[in-house]
Design a protein around this nucleic acid. Structure first.
Lengths: 362, 362
DNA sequence: TATTAGCACTCGAAATAAATGAGTGCTAAC
DNA sequence: GTTAGCACTCATTTATTTCGAGTGCTAATA
C-alpha cells in the first residue's frame, strides 16, 4: 500500500513526539499539537492503518502508538527534516573541536570523548590508515649493546624503539644498516617486507647478528600498528540518562558490550564515504546486543589515507536529525583538520547525506 | 566501653555475612551459622549494645543489623582475617599480570583494566615518576626546514618530536646544538631548565633562529609529562553489578564522577609506602561523591622513582580482605616488574599490611 | 466517500487494603 | 549471665479497587 501524504505527516509527528517524551503518543495529543486539520477520530483511523503497515505499534490495547524500527527507518529516510545547526552551535562545536585537536595527539579517544559530551550518548571513534609507508630510517648508536631505531612515516609521524642486544655491535654496522634500510625499506608497505627482502639485506650488510631482522620486525610492527584500525568507545555511562535503560541489567549488558570492544559496525564493513552519515536502527544491527539500539555514524576522510568514523549508540528513540548534524559536522571538521588543511569554514556542514541499511530485517 | 571478645566475634560475623548477602543479618542466622555457643536471645542483647556503640545500625525497627562505617573500620583494622590467595589464584594472577605487562607499554591503563577484571569493581591506577632526567639527546637533520628531536630518559624510554621550521637551518648547527644539549641538558630535572641556561646555550651556539628554545621546550615538556602523575579509571560499569547501585541515578552519579577524573584519593595525598594497602570507608572519603562508597588502594614502588597506586571503588560493603590481597599482590608484582627485577616469586604477597584513615569522621 | 462526535470497552498504572513473616525488645524463669 | 517465650513492629508481598488515557466501532454529518 502506498503511504499517503497525510499518513507521512502523522507518522512524522508521532516519531517527533515520541523522541521528545519517550511515552506512547495518542490520537488526541496529535490532533492538538501537530497542525493537521482533522479530528482525533480521523487520526485514530490513520494510526490503525499505520500499525497495519508496520510503521507503528501499540505496547498494549489501550495505549498510544510507538514507532517500530521500520517506522524510524521511514522517518530517517524520508520524513525527518534535516536540522541545520545554528550559528552559535557551529561556533561552539568548532571551538571545542579545535581545542581537542590542538591539545595532544591522542586524537581518536579525544574525539570520541567530545562526541559523547556533545550528544550525551556513548560515542565511538574509529580511525585507520591505508597504505602506510616509512619515509626515513635513522638508527642511533648509543653503546655497543644499545641502539635506537627512529622511523618517520609518510604522514610525518615519528616512532622509535630502544633495542638492547646481548651482543656487541660496532657503529659502522649501524650506519651501514641505516643506509640500507633507507634504500630498500622506505616507501613500501607492510606486506612488501618479505623474508626474501630481509634475507638479501642481511646478506648485503654482512650482518651476522640478526640486527636486520630486529629492525625489519620493528618496521613491520610500526606499519601494522599504524594501519590497524584503532577504536575507542567512551561515555558508556551516559546510557543511564535514557529512560529505556533504567533497568540496570539492560544498561549493564549494553555498557559492557560497548566497553569490551565488541563490534558496533558489521565487521569488515568499510568506513563509508566521507561526509556520509549512516544510521543503523534496532534489528538492522548485526550484533545481538545492539538489536534494540540504534547507531549513528559519520565518516571522515583526511585525504592522506587516514579514514575513520565517529558515532554514537543509543536507544532506537534518538534524535536522529540533531545527532546526525552534529556528527556530520565533526566528521567534516576532522576531514579538514587531519588532512592538514586550514580550519573548517562555518556552514560547510550542510552537505548532510543520510544513508542507511534499507533492507527490512524485521 | 571496651569491646568484649564475644562482641568482636559477633561483629565480624555480621560483617562477613553482610558482605556476602547484602541483606541485614538477624540474630537467628548468626546463632546458627557463626559457631559461638549461645542462643539468639543472647546475641540479640549483644547486637543491641553493638548498635549503641555505633558499630551497627538497623535500617528499621524490625530488621536485622548492618555495619556502620565505624563497624567496617573496626572490621578492617582488627577483625578481618587476612586472606591468603590460594596457589591457583596466585598462578592465575601472575600469569595475567605478566601477559599485560609484556603486551605493550600503555601499562597503567592495562593494569587498571586488569584490576577491574579481577575484582569486578571499577578500578583506578595511578603512576608517577619523580626526578625524571634526560640521559641523551639526538637531533636528526631531515631537511633544511625539518629535524627530529629524540631524547632518551634515565629510565631508557625514548621520546621524539618532529619539528618543522619556517626558516632554514644547516646541518652543522643541528650537530652543534645536539652536542651542547648533551653537555648541558642531560641529568637535570624539569625545574633546572631555566631561562638563564637556555639563553646561555643559545648564545654559545650562536643560534639566532630560536632552535635552542624549541629543543629546550620539548625537553621540558617531556620531563613534565613524564613526571606528571597519570591516572586511569576503568570498568566503571561494573558498579552496576552491585545491589547498592541498582538505582540508575545513584549509579550514574558515581560512574560519571569516576569517569570525569575526579579525585578519588585526597588531592596531594602521597602515594604511600610500597606494599601498603589503604582503605577509605564511606565518609572517610573527602570527595562528596564517594561518601557512601569505599576505596581500597595498594601502593607500588618500582625503585627507580616510579611509584603508583592501584585500587578499586565500590560500595562500603566490599570484600575488603579478598580485594586487599589481590591488589596487594598486583602492586608487589608491579614493584618487581617495573623495577626491572625478575618475575615475581609466588608467596611473596603475604606481607600484607593494611593501614587506613582511622579518624572517626562519621 | 471521508470525516467526526459519541460511547462502550480495555487494560496498565496508581492507590488502597490486607496478609505475611522476619526480626526485634522485653520479661520472667533458669 | 543466659535463654525461652511472646507481644509487637514494620517492610515486603499479594490482592483488590479505582482511575483514566486511549482505543475501536457505530451512526450521524458534510
Amino acid at each position: 500500500m502506498e503511504i499517503s501524504e497525510r499518513k507521512k505527516k502523522i507518522l512524522a509527528a508521532v516519531v517527533d513526539e515520541y523522541i521528545l517524551t519517550a511515552e506512547p503518543v495518542g490520537s488526541k495529543a496529535l490532533a492538538e499539537k501537530a497542525g493537521l486539520g482533522c479530528s482525533s477520530a480521523t487520526i485514530r483511523n490513520e494510526l490503525a492503518e499505520l500499525v497495519n503497515m508496520g510503521y507503528l505499534e501499540q505496547p498494549h490495547t489501550s495505549a498510544g502508538r510507538v514507532p517500530t524500527p521500520l517506522g524510524y527507518r521511514m522517518y530517517v529516510n524520508e520524513l525527518m527534516q534535516k536540522q541545520k545547526l545554528s550559528l552559535e552551535e557551529t561556533e561552539e562545536l568548532n571551538l571545542r573541536l579545535e581545542k581537542k585537536l590542538n591539545e595532544l595527539d591522542n586524537t581518536i579517544s579525544d574525539v570520541s570523548r567530545l562526541a559523547s559530551q556533545l550528544t550525551n550518548y556513548p560515542a565511538l571513534a574509529l580511525s585507520s590508515r591505508s597504505q602506510v609507508t616509512i619515509k626515513r630510517f635513522d638508527i642511533i648508536y648509543v653503546d655497543a649493546n644499545t641502539f635506537i631505531i627512529v622511523v618517520m612515516l609518510d604522514n610525518n609521524t615519528v616512532r622509535n624503539k630502544l633495542v638492547h642486544l646481548p651482543v656487541s655491535v660496532d657503529e659502522g654496522m649501524v650506519k651501514k644498516l641505516s643506509t640500507m634500510f633507507n634504500a630498500s625499506f622506505t616507501g613500501i608497505t607492510d606486506s612488501q617486507i618479505t623474508p626474501v627482502l630481509i634475507n638479501s639485506t642481511e646478506r648485503a650488510a654482512d650482518d651476522s647478528l640478526g640486527l636486520t631482522s630486529v629492525i625489519a620486525a620493528f618496521a613491520m610492527e610500526v606499519l601494522a600498528t599504524e594501519a590497524a584500525p584503532a577504536a575507542f568507545v567512551t561515555g558508556e555511562n551516559r546510557l543511564l540518562n535514557q529512560p529505556e535503560f533504567r533497568d540496570p541489567d539492560k544498561a549493564h549488558r549494553l555498557m559492557s558490550y560497548l566497553s569490551s570492544g565488541g563490534y558496533i559496525l558489521p565487521p569488515g564493513e568499510d568506513l563509508g564515504d566521507a561526509n556520509e552519515v549512516r544510521v543503523l536502527i534496532g534489528p538492522e544491527n548485526v550484533a545481538e546486543e545492539l538489536k534494540d539500539s540504534s547507531v549513528i555514524v559519520a565518516s571522515y576522510d583526511a585525504g592522506d589515507g587516514t579514514k575513520g568514523l565517529i558515532g554514537v549508540v543509543g536507544p532506537t528513540r534518538m534524535d536522529y536529525s540533531a545527532i546526525a548534524s552534529k556528527l556530520s559536522f565533526l566528521a567534516q571538521g576532522l576531514s579538514r583538520r587531519l588532512g592538514g588543511g586550514e580550519a573548517p569554514v562555518e556552514g560547510m556542514h550542510n552537505k548532510l547525506i543520510i544513508k542507511g541499511d534499507d533492507s527490512d530485517k524485521r
